[in-house]
């Protein structure tokens, strides 16, 4: 039930005639839902831009949102939804910004049957626009979430120097495969950068370990060994020890210590054994 070119341009004319009143009504309707989180002036400007884009698309005879004539409108909608998504507005609040134009138009359209019929068609055009906005909103939000996940990876993986020749990674929080991988790569790189032959992986802050994560830790220990460094794992919780055994993961000859302090003492002892000779 697409708008015919004729109807589209008729609405374009209607929008032009009632510009001030409609923008006002539209802005009021949107302002209501946003409850003052955007200033009236800014909202008015956004609405006016959007209004012009709508009018332009209709004047061009756009029958649907994906037509060439509606390119400017699409750009405006994208900008609006990007902005709303970034400012933390809900999906509802974003969609209402578009739907509200219907209420505004309905007030000025009159009540004869022909007008109402073509209003229904306009309505489906607006629905398309709103769906487009909604999809764009979701995409932006997904992008934000992905960015944040990445930032979290950066944040949550410190590798600290504990002693001359000893670095430690205190792991905190749930480890998924991606994070385990990032942590482990960073640990190995730090070994090279600092020339530290010992690394302590402390998992006191890790609530649970699954097979994949355990495998990552194991592979890191083996990789470190290939590079000429030794890893000690400390702070294994009882539940994790049970999981490890239940899953049949072989920790083999990897040194495990109860606490970070024990691990450090163990390393210093090993180091100390050779220190006197080097004197």
């Amino acid at each position: 039930m697409a708008l015919s070119t004729e109807e589209a341009s008729r609405f374009a004319g209607l929008l032009q005639e009632n510009e001030d009143a409609l923008i006002g009504a539209w802005t009021d309707r949107v302002a209501e839902t946003l409850r003052g989180r955007l200033s009236r002036v800014e909202l008015q400007r956004q609405t006016a831009d959007l209004y012009k884009a709508f009018q332009q698309a209709l004047a061009g005879g756009a029958a649907g949102i994906n037509r060439d004539e509606a390119a400017e409108l699409r750009a405006q909608l994208s900008e609006l939804s990007d902005g709303r998504a970034r400012q933390g507005f809900s999906a509802n609040e974003t969609a209402v910004s578009i739907f509200a134009v219907k209420d505004a138009v309905l007030k000025v359209i009159g009540d004869d049957t022909a007008a109402l019929l073509s209003f229904i068609k306009l309505s489906s055009f607006v629905d398309e626009a709103a769906l487009f906005t909604f999809e764009n909103y979701t995409r932006t939000r997904e992008g934000l979430i992905a960015d944040q996940a990445e930032q979290l990876l950066e944040l949550s993986t410190p590798v600290v120097k504990l002693w001359e020749g000893v670095v430690a990674v205190p792991l905190v929080g749930t480890l998924d495969s991606a994070r385990a991988q990032v942590v482990m790569e960073r640990l190995l790189q730090t070994l090279v950068d600092t020339g530290s032959p010992y690394a302590i992986i402390d998992i006191t802050g890790v609530p649970a370990v699954d097979t994949q994560v355990a495998q990552h830790i194991l592979k890191t220990v083996v990789a470190a060994r290939l590079m000429g460094a030794d890893c000690i794992i400390s702070g294994i919780r009882p539940q994790i020890a049970q999981t490890i055994v239940a899953l049949g993961i072989e920790f083999g000859d990897i040194a495990t210590k109860a606490t970070l302090a024990d691990a450090l003492r163990y390393v210093l002892n090993k180091n100390g054994a050779r220190k006197p000779r080097e004197r």
Partner: peptide, 11 residues
């Protein structure tokens, strides 16, 4: 041995 090389060898 570079870290990436070590990881690859393990794999």
């Amino acid at each position: 041995m570079r870290p990436a090389v070590a990881i690859t060898l393990v794999e």
